[in-house]
Computed example of a mutant assay.
Amino acid sequence: MRTNPTGRQLRFGTELRKLRERAGLSATEAGQLLGIRQTQVSNMEAGRVGVGAERLRTIARHYDCSDKALVEALAAMAPDRKRGWWEEYRELLSSGLLDLAEAEHHARSLRSTTTARIPGLLQTREYALEIFRQAVVELSPPDIEHRLSFRIKRQAVLFREENPTPYAATVHEAALRMKVGGPTIARQQLRHLLYMSERKHVTLRAISFDVGAYPGSGQSIYYLHGAVPQLDTIQLDQSHGATFVDAEAQLHKYRTLFDRIEAIALSPAKTRDLIHNVMRDL
């Protein structure tokens, strides 16, 4: 039995519970239907016990789930026993950061919107280092190095030789103009944004100061698309740390929010023009 399920394992268990609840079954009733104890049902739904792909399909049939796309997406999650690169940081960083890397690794596509900082997947090493040095709770040099190497390794999802993850980032002009680390580092970061914006699977849009207030302004939001919409995940940056959201109503709300934000943002071409203008102002 797992003592510390990963975020992905917990999410799988949560989706099992949702299937059962949609079927109108209690855990005890589900156990009777499946021929197992209620405690085993609870352990599966808590991510403490693994479920194979065929067992998942059997459970879905007993729960009268007719959503084949969702069932197959869950079946693909079920046998995932491989240890990802992020596991080497298990004793060094918070579980939330490891869960984020795991979710990014499996995401079909990514969307983000930021106001005051360049998003992590697009940061240069020097820019990220300055951000970590300015943490409210001062980090030790080893802690900074762990976080820095972890952030750079996360960016590998954008550089895969086969099927790099599509990424749409919306960045406020304030983040582009903020001289993090001084003019030299800031200019280097802007050049990197231009380079990344030319990659086919990366879409970069900026929100200019002219827009004024807009939906979601002031928030840093990260949307990770799963194999089906029900398996999407949202990460929100809070003062106490990152929060993950996956309730269906919230997923719909934030999908709509991203659509509205991207609609008011500059086109990718005009965004590159803005970045060039900011670089000239440095």
Results as ranks from 00 to 15, higher is better:
H192G: 03
V137I: 13
L148H: 05
N4K: 15
Y214F: 03
Y222C: 00
R81E: 11
A168L: 13
K253I: 08
A269D: 15
F258P: 00
R147A: 02
V71E: 06
A46V: 04
G216Q: 00
H201K: 04
E45D: 05
R133T: 11
A46D: 00
H276F: 09
H146W: 15
A27D: 08
R8L: 12
W86G: 00
H105Q: 12
L70S: 05
A103G: 01
R17Y: 08
H276P: 01
A75Q: 06
R199V: 00
A30K: 03
P229A: 13
V71Q: 06
T28L: 02
E88H: 15
F150Y: 12
L266F: 14
T124E: 06
A169E: 08
T203I: 11
G47P: 04
T165G: 00
F159A: 14
M44R: 04
D281M: 09
H225P: 06
R280H: 10
E102S: 07
A168C: 14
I275H: 01
R272I: 10
T243I: 11
Y195D: 13
P164I: 11
M279W: 09
D237N: 10
A242R: 01
K82R: 15
G84M: 13
L121E: 00
A69Q: 15
G50H: 07
P268G: 10
A227D: 07
A78S: 10
T28M: 06
L251M: 11
H106M: 11
S217D: 14
S42M: 10
L204M: 01
E248Y: 08
P142K: 07
T115I: 03
T14W: 09
T124P: 02
R61I: 12
L158I: 12
Y63H: 11
R260M: 14
K200Y: 05
R147I: 06
S267Y: 14
L97H: 10
H225L: 09
G181K: 01
T3C: 12
A249H: 15
E161K: 07
P183S: 12
A269Q: 15
Q155R: 08
N163Y: 14
V245H: 01
K153Y: 10
L25W: 04
E173I: 07
A227H: 04
I221S: 00
L110D: 04
Q38V: 09
A168W: 15
R280G: 06
R199D: 04
T14R: 14
T28W: 05
K179E: 13
H240S: 14
